[in-house]
Write a protein that binds this DNA or RNA. Sequence first.
DNA 1: CTGTGTGTTTTATTAAATGAAATACATTTC
DNA 2: GAAATGTATTTCATTTAATAAAACACACAG
Lengths: 232, 232
Amino acid sequence: MTEIKKNPIGVLERGLLLLSCFTQQSPRLQLRELSALSGLDKATALRALKTLVIWGYLEKSPDGAYSPGPSNLRMAAIFKTTSNFVSRLEAPIGNISRRVELTTSFFVRSNNDRVCLARDFSHQDFRYFIDVGASVPFSEGGAAAKILLAHTEPENAESAKIIEDGFYISRGELNKHFASVATPLFETDGSFLGAITITGMTVDLDDHTLKGFTKIIREEMASMGFFSGQPR
Amino acid sequence: MTEIKKNPIGVLERGLLLLSCFTQQSPRLQLRELSALSGLDKATALRALKTLVIWGYLEKSPDGAYSPGPSNLRMAAIFKTTSNFVSRLEAPIGNISRRVELTTSFFVRSNNDRVCLARDFSHQDFRYFIDVGASVPFSEGGAAAKILLAHTEPENAESAKIIEDGFYISRGELNKHFASVATPLFETDGSFLGAITITGMTVDLDDHTLKGFTKIIREEMASMGFFSGQPR
DNA sequence: CTGTGTGTTTTATTAAATGAAATACATTTC
DNA sequence: GAAATGTATTTCATTTAATAAAACACACAG
């Protein structure tokens, strides 16, 4: 969550806005930075930060910098136990990775980021890839972001075609050496869950190959009762 | 976090109070339950829940139940990258587990719970043990809780002795078949970090054996610059 | 010791949170 | 099938807390 919301009304929302300022790239922020990033007054931010520290959602280092606290780990652990579909995804994701010999990931939308909920690392050649739990703002693009945006804000002009196609191929959007194909993932009842992505080296992957992967995704996901591709 | 705070002033605090209602045991709660658990008015809770859902810290199932959302995973991932001492702990925890052939864990205090930040499962015989990120309220006791309480609220009468001893042995507090020894863990500068615990079957572990483990903890932790035992 | 960049506290003003009641919407019961 | 029950949601006058500007404190650098 990098995008700054214009008019956050309510302290709770302001507090969450402060949390959203933290990223993998800038996991430690001081009051000045947080105030600037969130657009909140120093005093306002300080008050919210204090409560967040008290409740363990942030920590304050002796040098004055804030960073996420252990309460997040607690909540994440509970999230994993409830999110039944994440555990159902692990097997098919592993199978896909094995068959295509590339890294397969599952992303959901959370506000204006895509968050990685599951991933198979077995064919990871480069330490480029982000970890489970990591998030990237939509603005930085990528195939998964396109799918998520199309299915959560269908009014977009580009969205209609992406939904129609049932997949999206991106080349070099995040890193010039990588290409990805992403497909939407649906629950049995047709509800949208997120995006499955297969990523590999651009040189190895022509569009025909990438499109062929969508069939593999569909097959493996069907085995666990998921549906992937064009919505029916 | 199970204990209910008496007078939470401020919406942010009320929102965090709602989050704290979720536990491993009850990861799904509906408005009625949340309202009862937190002591907040239905309407008040509902407003806070809405924003928490919007920001991805909670999810709302079609059946109306709320549960933790993916944003927690995002924050937890960032927490892990900043919490440098957690990664420094992994090696010594693994070594201790290998030497004592039992499960070793590290807990910190977060509000009124102890949260597990690191654990070695290699000698786990029973599926009893909780996972990393899991938390247990202090009220349910356990050796780690005693240590954490003693070092974060030293004014307590019992605390003086626990600090003096540098360890605490518990038997059957959480489960009658298990016994644990816990020691405080300090950073090089003497600041308190949390509690290291070794847990095993009561029948295998007399007090002398458990006390002997504290020496192993001290040795292994010292190798990474930590200090464990009586504060100096 | 003066200046600059921080974090923190204070306080009158302003804006948002509250909660009781009304409404809506299921599901169950008779 | 109608009434009853339990739950979620909206509304709105009242109350309460959040706000932000300014003043203060504190460290560090030149």
